[in-house]
Design a protein around this nucleic acid. Structure first.
Lengths: 213, 213
DNA sequence: GCGCAAATCACCCAAATGGGTACTAGACGC
DNA sequence: GCGTCTAGTACCCATTTGGGTGATTTGCGC
């Protein structure tokens, strides 16, 4: 925030294979004070070659691209341009794609046919250290924080499972809960039964993924 | 979306201990077509008693409340009103609080001193199945999807770690990678060393938490 | 009061795990 | 060419884990 308190121009690069869309974005950026379209590319491969020479502040990245797609592109470019933020431009709001893009290092995820105003606002938000996304995508993301299912584990079982996730062994769990190791075993067996797993590792993964702990 | 295609009034409840703020919200809602302030409460305890009788569409929930705080309030109310969405109202954008609120079941997280327009827009977005949050909070959330640190595991080690997370044992990992179980052990030992863990469970937790896989 | 589930404990045993040590072959940098 | 790194291999051994079986107590619902 304070970093950007002196008004300056946000330099933006565009990676988009559709020539029409690419030029429309370029024009939108050129027409507006405070923005500069530093470069445009029709493929990630081109962007990878040229962008490192003059890193922009923000990259608008299409997802569906011939050759290397936008997600792989972000992953590769982010390595070379750690200070640059990436804003995904897409036509559909698919759960799987959203999460893969965010995991790859995208800072935002907006729709291609949003208004120029909305796109410029998203660029500004990202540049200022925030993140931009549609409400629908935000809900997908928010939902991923919420418990997935009720696995009807008893309170005691949840307690044991939590310690299992901490990497504690039978003996230390037993000591912490003031019960015998045999009882710990019994609870763990019950947990495995209810979660349909057979090993510690699977139980830990399920507990973390489904946010049971 | 189609569910709400017939224009109707969104009924909103407010839980906020500050009388001024509470009344301001009430007035904002009353003054606008399409919104209705169904009820207001100064504590979660009160809301828990009365809300189940007539569930609103959206609840605006303050976080800092005397007695039961807004996060515990959401968790409790969400059980009773599964169809209702909760929008947290807060003054600060603290990472820990944000994640706890979302885990508790909140659908959005906005600033108390946002404009009436922005608050009404957030309510609408949440009502329509989306989610509302400030760009700063969105970035916190997005960041949680990205790898936390470079633990300099080799490619092979990452491969082994991934299978470890799947709950596979030495033998099946060895078979999958066409190497001996001894080599698998060697890789795993190296992984444990680099991640500073000593057991499978800890390794799985670290891998999932830090998004190494 | 009966039944049932949860929580507690016990014993056996095969398999898996984690730690220690030691060696070889290829790749890469300098 | 020498050192270092990663990958791959091997063996030993104590500890841990997971599965099977069975038992007691407590509390809750009907």
């Amino acid at each position: 925030m304070s970093m950007h308190s002196i008004p300056r121009v946000i330099s933006v690069a565009v990676v988009e294979d559709d020539r029409e869309v690419r030029q429309a974005l370029q024009l939108t950026l050129a027409a507006r004070d405070g923005f500069r379209c530093a470069s445009t590319f029709s493929s990630c491969e081109d962007a990878l070659k040229q962008l490192p020479e003059e890193p922009p502040d923000v990259v608008l990245m299409d997802i569906n691209l011939p050759g290397m797609d936008g997600i792989a592109g972000v992953k590769a470019l982010k390595e070379l341009l750690p200070g640059t933020d990436f804003l995904m431009l897409t036509v559909r709001e698919e759960e799987d794609t959203v999460f893969r893009a965010l995991s790859a290092g995208a800072s935002g995820y907006i729709l291609k046919h949003a208004s120029p105003e909305a796109i410029l606002e998203a660029i500004t938000e990202v540049y200022e250290g925030g993140s931009a996304m549609t409400p629908v995508i935000a809900r997908l993301v928010v939902r991923s924080f919420q418990p997935k299912a009720a696995h009807d584990l008893s309170d005691r079982e949840l307690e044991v499972l939590a310690k299992l996730c901490d990497g504690e062994n039978y003996r230390s769990i037993a000591e912490a809960l003031f019960i015998s190791t045999n009882t710990v075993k019994a609870h763990i067996k019950s947990v495995y039964l209810k979660l349909h797993v057979h090993t510690r590792a699977e139980a830990v993964r399920k507990a973390l993924r489904d946010r049971l702990v």
